[in-house]
């Protein structure tokens, strides 16, 4: 399957101008280094790390949400026991980061970072609040759609993926150069979570579902490694 990934050089995304390589990438023949990847243990991730609403004295402001899904390989098989990291802005669209100068309030009860290992069926689940949109200076009146950053490892160096999860029906998606950098419309829509009644809890939280499917462009994994 062709790679759905965006190009490095994306004129509509200003930050790429001085950072996108100008020379063509060189194909890397896969070897043992690319066919393997780091292993993370249960002892490195606490159960509470997947609940972004419970790390401070009070509850964060905003719409409480359950974000869950599965980590799958290109053949649709579960990828178990792999690290998933997320980070996001608070409900007002402000990051708990010194460089973020957006004049929206910080929430003393929300940092916005979480992690977990996928279960035997590849599943993960986070409790958090819905992040707000925020302005950036990429172009006049530029606003990023609400999103949650995802970092996943997969089983091999080639499967390493950092991406962003968006929310369904967000009118800002159609104007976001980062979202639109994925040229293929179907691939782009795989970045958008779906509202999910199954994980919506009565009197408590809305549910959103977001499956992550690993590419890993390595044509022939080395025999004997996993």
């Amino acid at each position: 399957m062709a790679s759905p990934d965006p190009p490095y050089d994306e004129p509509a995304y200003r930050s790429s101008a001085l950072r996108a390589p100008r020379r063509p990438l060189v194909p890397l023949p896969g070897g043992p280094t690319e066919a393997s990847g780091p292993v993370f243990g249960e002892d490195e991730v606490e159960p509470g790390d997947a609940d972004l609403t419970c790390h401070h004295e009070g509850e964060p402001l905003g719409q409480r949400i359950n974000v869950s899904g599965r980590l799958l390989d290109g053949d649709g098989r579960a990828v178990a026991g792999q690290l998933v990291e997320i980070w996001q802005a608070n409900a007002a669209g402000r990051y708990a980061h010194e460089v973020d100068q957006h004049p929206a309030p910080l929430d003393p009860n929300f940092t916005g970072a979480g992690r977990c290992l996928t279960g035997p069926d590849g599943s993960y689940r986070f409790v958090t609040i819905k992040p707000g949109a925020y302005p950036w200076r990429n172009h006049p009146n530029a606003w990023r759609p609400a999103h949650i950053h995802f970092s996943v490892f997969g089983r091999a160096f080639t499967e390493r993926l950092v991406t962003q999860m968006y929310f369904p029906g967000d009118p800002l998606l159609a104007h976001d150069p980062i979202y639109l950098s994925v040229r293929d419309e179907q691939a782009r829509e795989r970045l958008v979570s779906s509202f999910d009644w199954q994980t919506t809890e009565e009197e408590w939280a809305l549910g959103y579902r977001f499956d992550v499917v690993l590419g890993g462009h390595l044509a022939t994994p080395v025999e004997g490694l996993r």
């Binding site: 399957m1 790679s3 759905p4 990934d5 965006p6 995304y13 930050s15 799958l72 290109g74 649709g76 990291e85 997320i86 980070w87 802005a89 990051y95 708990a96 980061h97 460089v99 973020d100 940092t111 916005g112 970072a113 950053h149 970092s151 993926l161 950092v162 991406t163 962003q164 980062i178 979202y179 950098s181 994925v182 179907q186 691939a187 782009r188 795989r190 970045l191 499956d211 992550v212 499917v213 690993l214 590419g215």
Partner: peptide, 16 residues
């Protein structure tokens, strides 16, 4: 379903 596309890590990842 095809693979999930990559997106930038952005500027505000340090705390995550």
């Amino acid at each position: 379903r095809g693979p999930t596309p990559s997106q930038t890590v952005g500027p505000f990842f340090r705390f995550g």
